[in-house]
Design a protein around this nucleic acid. Structure first.
Length: 276
DNA sequence: TGCCAGGAAGCCG
DNA sequence: CGGCTTCATGGC
């Protein structure tokens, strides 16, 4: 089906570092696995897209996944910067418009961002891909495209994956973190309760687990639970803060209150891609 | 080859 | 608290 969407740039989304599960089919087309759904989405021009799903599946699954109900929010951030004087920030927002904060599966987000620590995008994708395939001996078949795809392993499945097995996916020392967190969440049956926590309580709770620090906790809060006030500070953001804002974390300014995570995403994208 | 990658834990002062 | 070291591993 064809659909018109404002503020959605697939290539930027692919490189945004908020997900490690999209695959590039060609320059304009990407495949996405979300829960037990598969989608191929092609960019036709600036705001028209061709999706492999039915209209009903678009409305029930993908509309929410791409955060399409928040288009006015992304537009208002763009227009509000027209009067801003900070050159670097203005450029970053104009450059980054087209990136949205996906509403991803929170369990998958939790695990993939533990994997992401002190790691690079290419290797993260590879590890996550191998993890998916290990637990999908019989992959699902998408009825629209006939393509095979591999859903992310469940909490139950990861809780019974030995550390030595996890290490074969290139997880290194992170294997122990993932094993212990999965076992703990499964044994205590307290994963589902995380979605009811406030942003502050969620960060506090996540950081009680060995292997989740402040940065990863904020990534999970932002990408897995859509707390838009979460603003992960990674190595790139530290460099931005030091080089362009004299050490001030500009996201803490009151005028950005409530959507620091979106700005952080724009800044990350601008800093890591502006020279390409 | 040494350094970096969307960091975090452990230790030390 | 603030700074330093170690932790696997692949890409460049």
């Amino acid at each position: 089906m064809k659909v018109t969407i404002l503020c959605l740039d697939l290539e930027k989304m692919y490189n945004s570092g908020q997900q490690f599960t999209w695959s590039r089919i060609d320059n304009d087309t990407y495949s996405i696995v979300h829960k037990d759904h598969y989608l191929e989405i092609k960019s036709l021009n600036n705001h028209d897209f061709d999706l492999s799903c039915s209209e009903q599946e678009f409305k029930s699954i993908w509309y929410s996944y791409f955060d399409l109900g928040s288009t006015s929010k992304y537009l208002s951030i763009f227009f509000n910067t027209l009067e801003m004087s900070n050159c670097y920030l203005t450029k970053a927002i104009h450059y980054g418009t087209g990136i949205r904060i996906l509403r991803q599966n929170s369990w998958e987000t939790l695990i993939t961002f533990i994997i992401s620590q002190n790691n690079n995008m290419k290797r993260i994708r590879k590890s996550v891909d191998e993890l998916r395939k290990y637990w999908s001996l019989s992959p699902l078949i998408d009825k629209n495209t006939n393509k095979k795809f591999y859903p992310f392993p469940t909490l139950f499945q990861l809780a019974q994956t030995p550390i030595e097995q996890l290490k074969e996916f290139g997880l290194g020392y992170r294997a122990e973190y993932i094993h212990n967190i999965s076992m703990n969440l499964y044994a205590n049956d307290n994963f589902d309760s995380l979605q009811n926590l406030s942003y502050e309580d969620l960060i506090k709770e996540l950081k009680t687990y060995k292997g989740i620090g402040d940065k990863v906790a904020n990534c999970i809060a932002l990408y897995g639970y859509h707390h838009l006030q979460a603003a992960p500070i990674d190595t790139h953001m530290k460099r931005i803060i030091n080089e362009y804002f004299n050490g001030e974390n500009i996201l803490n300014r009151p005028e950005f209150n409530g959507y620091q995570g979106i700005l952080q995403q724009y800044l990350f994208d601008y800093e890591t891609n502006k020279n390409i």
